[in-house]
């Protein structure tokens, strides 16, 4: 299958099945882009999530542009982005056209109510796939000497504290962890 068709279909699925906004698209992107097609390594995917956090724009659109660009240049980026927004365009326009104020809207909200816990679980699952290789060098949870990355664990704990207790802005927290690691690596390398 042509790479354009693959890009289009992969992002069509991402666009069609991500309900709930925010990180809801992340598990789907990971499954298609990292798992199924291997277009990005897990490390590149994590960088993409980081970049998406720090720039405006939805993560799915960012991912479509980034992956499309890497795989097949600007035409690839355009095709992946179109695939990603096509389901929205159709679904939302049809709903807006019929302007559902009555039962069907309640049905949709009811379905959405059950999707929310599923989406939370899948975001957690995708988050662990990012967290575990960041803390454990072999990519598997094991506290053997040399496998557990103590410095990264400290950055993670500091970041979690700043986010959850002190309610810092996520962008600021990520910039801080990046800066701390840069200082640490520079220290190790040059001192």
């Amino acid at each position: 299958m042509s790479v354009y068709v693959e890009l289009f279909l992969a992002f069509l699925q991402i666009g069609a099945f991500s309900f709930g906004g925010g990180y809801a698209a992340m598990p789907l992107i990971q499954e298609q882009v990292v798992g199924k097609y291997g277009w990005l390594s897990l490390s590149d995917f994590t960088d993409l999530v980081t970049i998406s956090q720090m720039t405006p724009g939805p993560i799915a659109v960012n991912a479509a542009t980034f992956v499309g660009e890497n795989i097949a240049g600007i035409p690839g980026a355009v095709i992946a982005t179109l695939g990603c927004i096509l389901p929205s365009c159709i679904f939302v326009t049809v709903l807006a056209h019929f302007y559902l104020k009555y039962q069907k809207m309640a049905m949709l909200q009811g379905i959405l109510g059950s999707l929310r816990p599923a989406v939370v679980a899948m975001i957690f699952s995708a988050g662990l796939l990012i967290l575990v290789p960041a803390l454990f060098r072999s990519g598997a949870v094991s506290f053997l000497a040399g496998n557990f990355h103590i410095r990264m664990a400290v950055w993670f704990a500091v970041a979690l504290f700043l986010l959850m207790k002190l309610k810092w802005d996520p962008i600021l927290v990520m910039v801080l962890t990046g800066a701390m690691e840069l200082v640490a690596q520079t220290w190790i390398r040059f001192c």
């Binding site: 990180y23 960088d47 988050g127 967290l131 664990a153 950055w155 970041a159 927290v173 910039v175």
Partner: peptide, 10 residues
């Protein structure tokens, strides 16, 4: 370093 930060955000 940001990998630790973005993990914490998620």
């Amino acid at each position: 370093g940001m990998k630790a930060g973005v993990s914490a955000v998620i």
